[in-house]
Every structure is written in C-alpha cells, then in structure tokens.
Design a binder for these strands. Structure first.
Lengths: 121, 121
DNA sequence: CTTGACCCTGGACCGTACTCCACTGTCCAG
DNA sequence: CTGGACAGTGGAGTACGGTCCAGGGTCAAG
C-alpha cells in the first residue's frame, strides 16, 4: 500500500510516516516512480510503535527493537529473549509506578500532604 | 538553603533548578541581594517531581499538581481527592503496561513474532 | 584590596518528535 | 490535455526539557 492508505489505516499523518521512515523506524520499498510502498504488516507494526511510545519508550529505542528483530529474523529464541527483556523493562516500570502509588496512597486522608514537604507555595 | 546546596542535595544542576522555578514548578524566596532561598522541603518536592516525571508526567502536569496543592492548602479533603485522582492516573498507566506485557508474553516462544506483523526488514 | 566561591540575568543552543510549507512530479478521468 | 488527487523533496518552525555561556554582582578569607 502507499503512504496515504497507511496514514488512513493508522491515524498517523503522511509527514509522521515519512519522519518514521527517515528515523529508521519503518522500512519501505519504492515503486518505479519513487512512491513508497508498505507491506500490510506495517499497520500492526505502527500500532505497536505507538503503544510502546505511549509507555515511555523513545523512537530510538523502538527502532533498535525493530533492528534486533530484523537481525535475529531466523532465530526464534532470540526473539523470545528480546520480548522477555522488554517484559522485564515493563515490569520495572510497573514496579516504579507501584511505589509512586503507595506514596500517594499513604498521603490520602492524612495531615501530611506533599505540601508540608516543600511543594511550591 | 541556596541554589547550590539544593542542587547538591538533589543531584540537579543549578540551571535545571532555575528552569524549574521559571516554569512554576518550584517557588523560592529571595535574600536582600537577590539570591534564591529554598525551604528544606524543596528537596523532597524535587524528588517527587523527578519520580513523577520519570513515570511520564510532563513538567506542566506536575506544576499543576503543585498549584492545586497550594490553592487547596487548608482543605485536607481536596488534597486527598487530588492524590486519589493521581492514583487513578497511575492505575490507568499500569493497566496499559499490563496490556503491553500480555502482548509481549503472548509472543514469547511462539512462531509469530512482531516481525511477521510488519516490523522493518 | 584582591581572589575565589558563589550567585544573578538573558539569550543562544541542543535533542526529540513531530508539523507545516513551498515547490515539483505522477497518474487517471473527463 | 487539463484538472485534481496523490506522491516526492528539502527546509523551516514548534513544543518540551533542559544545557551552556557571557557578562556581571556578592561576600568571606587572606
């Protein structure tokens, strides 16, 4: 499919897709006249990109994941390892959130809000 | 304390602290000669700022929290509500992470990695 | 009175992640 | 063959979150 269709299917703008391609986040073929051509799977890949990004991963990190995926294409084990590593990162992030949550919960209904600890004011 | 000590205690640079103050994230007094003066609690507040920031909250959002804290200073209920709301945000973020984790886990050890879904390559 | 550590301000600059724009090329329908 | 939808490029601009620097003031110690 061409860039317009991919944009329509993912909700991204053409500019963003071109930017992603330039950043190495997305690889495309070209037609004889220079138009970009994307495989149908690009839709799913971009969905993954947006999810990972929303969760705090930089485009550079996501692009690295993509590259590792490319490099280890024939090794299912490498792929599993990559996903497992990513799961560990996600778990760590969740643990941090749990700590923040606990800190917040401890202050609900108490007389010692953050303000007493130096919030602006 | 003055800016140098606060910087040393938080691990931030003076420039960052000045930037935070300019952004309304931090409020300071001034000595007669114009030097900024911070309360000891600023250390704890900045720790909170960095934690929240690392978890994906923008400085503007964090500053808003600080302002609301200031505005509702005498109402313990408002503070609790604020913290409860923040807990809901944290819970939502954790739920998103859980979804990503499940997606990753589903692909570990299978023959259908993301690459089959359109990763670059 | 000078040195050095500390502080001030304003403004330029950086990386990330887009977003917009001008100008140009391709291709199909009427 | 002309119009319009689509595509391409390069470059400027934006917002965020800093980071650095020049030029200058403050203050205690020697």
């Amino acid at each position: 499919m061409r860039i317009g269709e991919l944009a329509a299917r993912t909700g991204l703008t053409r500019d963003t897709i071109r930017f992603y391609e330039k950043s190495g986040l997305l690889v495309s073929g070209r037609t004889a006249n220079g138009y970009r051509v994307f495989s149908p799977g690009a839709v799913e890949w971009l969905r993954y990109v947006r999810t990972a990004q929303a969760l705090g991963f930089s485009l550079a990190e996501i692009a690295r994941t993509g590259e590792e995926l490319r490099g280890a294409a024939d090794t299912a084990g490498a792929l599993s390892a990559l996903f497992e590593e990513k799961i560990r990162v996600v778990d760590a992030r969740m643990a941090e959130l749990a700590v923040l949550r606990a800190e917040l919960a401890a202050r609900v209904g108490t007389g010692c809000p953050l303000r007493a600890s130096g919030a602006p004011g």
